[in-house]
Amino acid sequence: MNSRRLLTDYMALALVIVGLVLVFGVSTQNFLQFGTFRNIANQIPDAMVVAVGMTFVLIIGGIDLSVGSVLGLGSAMLGLCLVRFEFPLPVAIAACLATGLACGLLNGFLVVRWRLPSFIVTLGMLEVASGATYILTQSRTVYVGEPIERVSEVAAFGLSLPFMLAIAVVVAGQFALSGTVFGRHALALGANAESARLSGIRTRGLTVAVFALSGVLASLAGMMQCSRLGASDPNAGIGFELQAIAAVVIGGTSLMGGRGSVVNSFFGVIIIAVLAVGLATLGAQESTKRLVTGGVIVAAVILDYYRHRLNKA
């Protein structure tokens, strides 16, 4: 990748972020300070890892609507393992991740076995996982407290362990996408499924692997959210899938498949988070927040359109 590509690829979104930070900086008293950025960093790990999974799903031309409910189910599983069954932390985390992995594997299996559209399979999983969460928790908030809060309290330079973990996931995700056979095959599958199959790529296994990845990352996000809040909210993750898809699409990943970037999805997550925190700092009303967020999402995607025209020129 030459330097000019790098510039146009990452600069556009970075500029949007800088622009937003400046706007909020001048319109509020205390936005421009370390505390704000630490807040943002500690609040986005869940969105970051879900966005990484979603980037791969969109790249192969699929969609995963179940990430929000799988996040909720993972968080509930973790909370119950710690509180009701009194399992040690590593076992509880393993159970949480295994739950997400199982949901993702099932999504992938259903998609390839009966050639179903992932939209409808994962929509079904969205309902099933949230139903399971309500049954498990009896719709009650599971208070966990200290045992899980420890995870978020590990910090360096004011940045929590979940944030550093999420950064590692983003880096690994980008490497897997642009530096490994797995990534190349995923891009080929999304660009043209038939020619990918004819060129010898095991498309079915690849699809299952991508959905499994998305599931396991969603439950990891559940663990991160639970550790930040000190409790499992049975209503956690409602609408989270749309936020994740928005972040990934802002980052220029195509809904049609075949094109995408994990790092740009990360920028997408930051844009949405800066907006949310900035508008809350301003004390904006809910209606204003929605209007502005919607407007910025669309504007960022339009910007992405021109970025691509620039690249082709």
Binding site: Q33, L229, N235, A236, I238, V277, A280, G283, Q285, E286
Partner: peptide, 22 residues
């Protein structure tokens, strides 16, 4: 300041974090 947390834990967490910085 008075803002909506949409009845949700995670949303309120985000809103309150911003409130205490400002």
């Amino acid at each position: 300041t008075s803002q909506s947390g949409s009845w949700e834990m995670a949303k309120a967490n985000q809103v309150v974090a911003a409130m205490i910085t400002e």
